[in-house]
Nucleic acid binder design. Sequence first.
DNA 1: TTTAGCACTCTTATCATTCGAGTGCTAACT
DNA 2: AGTTAGCACTCGAATGATAAGAGTGCTAAA
Lengths: 341, 341
Amino acid sequence: MELSERKQKILAAVVEQYIKTGEPVGSKVLLDSLDMSVSSATIRNEMSDLVMLGYLDQPHTSAGRVPTHLGYRYYVDNLMKNGELNEETRRLIDAGVETSAGDPERLLEHAGEVLAYLTKCAAVMTTPAGESARIKRVELVPISSRTVMIVLLTSNGILRSKLCRMDMGITTSMCETFYNIADAALIGVPVRNITPAYLQSLAATLGMETLSMFPLLSTVADLSQSAIQSQVMLEGQSNLLHHREYEGRAYELLEFLSREDPLEQLIGQSRSDFEIRIGKENIFPQLENSSLILAKYSIGEDGGGSIGIIGPTRIDYPRLIPSLKYISGLISETMQKALED
Amino acid sequence: MELSERKQKILAAVVEQYIKTGEPVGSKVLLDSLDMSVSSATIRNEMSDLVMLGYLDQPHTSAGRVPTHLGYRYYVDNLMKNGELNEETRRLIDAGVETSAGDPERLLEHAGEVLAYLTKCAAVMTTPAGESARIKRVELVPISSRTVMIVLLTSNGILRSKLCRMDMGITTSMCETFYNIADAALIGVPVRNITPAYLQSLAATLGMETLSMFPLLSTVADLSQSAIQSQVMLEGQSNLLHHREYEGRAYELLEFLSREDPLEQLIGQSRSDFEIRIGKENIFPQLENSSLILAKYSIGEDGGGSIGIIGPTRIDYPRLIPSLKYISGLISETMQKALED
DNA sequence: TTTAGCACTCTTATCATTCGAGTGCTAACT
DNA sequence: AGTTAGCACTCGAATGATAAGAGTGCTAAA
């Protein structure tokens, strides 16, 4: 849909004004902020058209105009000029991220905190996905006579552990057997291949002696399972309460955000490196008044995850997008540096 | 402060009625729920006394009465009869906790979820404190030519890991040296003893060869540090938004809860096994309209942590306390079972 | 000491009124 | 054909008056 230059100018002005004030914007206010040499009546006509086209909405007949999600979309795609990342912000981000290079999860957590602080929105992060990760190491740690802790480490640095309780006492020979099996049939195997079916076939090959191994092996499968699933983290939920648009309606959103499954789904849908989903563009009805901005960070060829912000549709896109892009880039860089060499 | 039996009866009735409805309770309503053979005027007189004594408050001259934090306190200490844990609730708790016996953190998380669901409040949990824990195992896992992951396991089952980046390449001899040091001077040492000072003295004893070990050792110190600190977890924050008393005021509380440090402090203060802090009894002003109910769970002699709920002062104490006690008992039991033998 | 009765207080809901921001339309103008 | 001034109109927000209702405190009698 092509818009005349003047309509574009007006639409941009409405969006920007509304982002700034949160009040429906009328033709008079626009006159000031636009320094065009036209009258308010002309602007009214143009705005009326924009309403027809679906880019603007008016809460009631005698109110100013408010952008629809289509309006925001047009603005974001065609009109918006991304702001510069100011020096102070950059420093803040650097400081937040650099402190915790050693631990991916902590790194993400800190990045989320900074992001939430900067944007006054909620930040979501996913831990690096282990899609193509392989098992790097499996350790057995005796805890008591009948309990061992199994520790699993994957090639992309994910560490998972779980207790496993055995029916009989744990012997060194059992451990040896287990390590043998592990060396032969677990180490180096892609995590996603470690399925119950795989274990079945393993048991068949190895015969009787694996019987006592079964609890251990199935624990390994559990761990593999949980290593694949990238966890979702959330920071700064309470920031959302500051925004007028959620007044009284905050519960639905916060409740939605507090459940991991839908959140995972939400973020998992994304395929591109950078994505903005505005209001009703989101599939989940709980987000129909919110915008999601997602950026991917990457580690090496295959690995990576996402970091993003969730806030009202009336969010300061031009200011926040550069921050998010910078932060995701920095995460990629930092994680890469830690892992590769 | 001794109260006449009738005053006690009235106080109890006011508290219970207010818990049920959230409306200031007047003398008439009390008449019904009290089936005493007195008139409303008598009750009014008594209530007037209770206001003088500080147990009740009235929002304005012609409103009913509302319990003060002293009123709740008197009720909780002297008047309340704990309810029975109903069968369905017990089953729900059992189901929530049993599913994840293998992993202490996950166990707590699930317990918190169930608790939040049952109480419609926020649930807080701390991971088992490692006060007297010892280092059980230290592992070096090469990640790349210059990066190793160090994994620390303590006697109470806490697992921590961190990447450590070295200036020079990692050799097998370095690893051997490290393991030797670890065996000699780390394994079995109480975690809280692993301080920078301890490492200094270690370096002095071992001489030059430890120089290259220093990054590794100080990472071990970091990990020990973080193993000591029991983490605080939070579930069901969004539940709080349901309560009228937080309407419009929710931000302060949620913001407070989202910060780990004060939360840790809050829970750390507790010394007894079971504790109730009502409204202004809390030190933090953000909690002056909230109640905290905390129960300790224990593992063995020394270890343990807390689980509790945070909600409005107008909380259904008699119903929720049994649930909390049951859940904390179950956590103790389950964790114990997993670790000991 | 208790109680009935009653005047009084304060909140809440409702409704009419007003005010003002902003619109849409029309007719005139360039 | 597009633009503009002018004006009637709409709708929400604010204001204020009024009424209803809940609950109290006090007084005088039982």
